[in-house]
């Protein structure tokens, strides 16, 4: 019964962070469809979703500032606020990397279709990223630190693929726009993986008061 409105404010802030995770997943699904499926999502629709992401992120910042000012949080509540702001920022950055990847959909998809090997690699990396996004969002929702550590480990797989493609390009001295396109995409995905790992670190800090480096 104590501090009802305070508890409510903290919960609202958490819910907003959860909403950002869900929205990022939607953005990811829509824009990857553009690469692999027949029904491409419109640029406007994607832009709208990214704008919404920005709005929620700003809102979380404002909520955090007002809770700190008016409620003087301590103990886990302080971490709850710090992590909400940090995780919201990570989701926003992930969203904008996905939007950047989408930009390549004008020029890349035809070429990707014509190269089964590259197409497979991109599909694999898409699947890994998709899973990481789902699991990270889930780990935050369910406060699951074990899951958070596992998710962050998957980032290594992304890094390996990124390395492989990079080496491939250098070795074959093949600077065709096709491979370069993949490299750019995977470069963004590699950054997304880092942000997911940051989210997982924040979840662990939040729940266990431990500062860990997961990548």
């Amino acid at each position: 019964m104590m501090r009802k409105s305070y508890n409510k404010e903290l919960k609202e802030m958490r819910d907003e962070v959860i909403q950002m995770g869900d929205l990022v997943l939607k953005i990811f699904n829509h824009s990857s469809d553009t690469f692999f499926d027949k029904e491409p999502v419109s640029a406007e629709k994607l832009e709208k979703m990214v704008k919404k992401l920005e709005t929620i992120e700003k809102g979380i910042e404002k909520m955090a500032a007002s809770i700190i000012t008016l409620q003087q949080p301590v103990a886990k509540d302080t971490r709850e606020i710090i992590c909400a702001v940090r995780i919201a920022m990570s989701w926003l950055k992930i969203g904008s990397h996905i939007a950047d990847i989408y930009e390549y959909s004008d020029t890349c998809p035809e070429k990707i279709k014509n190269n089964p090997r590259e197409r497979d690699v991109l599909k694999t990396i898409k699947a890994i990223t998709h899973e990481m996004l789902i699991d990270a969002a889930d780990a935050y929702k369910s406060r699951d630190t074990d899951k958070a550590s596992i998710v962050a480990k998957k980032d290594d797989e992304v890094d390996l693929i990124f390395e492989e493609i990079r080496r491939d390009i250098i070795k074959e001295n093949d600077t065709t726009s096709f491979s370069l396109c993949s490299l750019m995409i995977v470069g963004h995905i590699e950054r997304i993986g880092d942000h997911i790992a940051n989210i997982c670190e924040d979840i662990i800090y939040l729940e266990r008061y431990e500062i860990v480096r997961l990548n």
Partner: peptide
């Protein structure tokens, strides 16, 4: 005590959720 209390009664008290 204020960043990471070990006892949940302490946490309850300092965060104002006590009682």
């Amino acid at each position: 005590i204020f960043e990471n209390p070990q006892d949940e009664r302490t946490e309850g008290y300092i965060t104002g959720r006590f009682g």
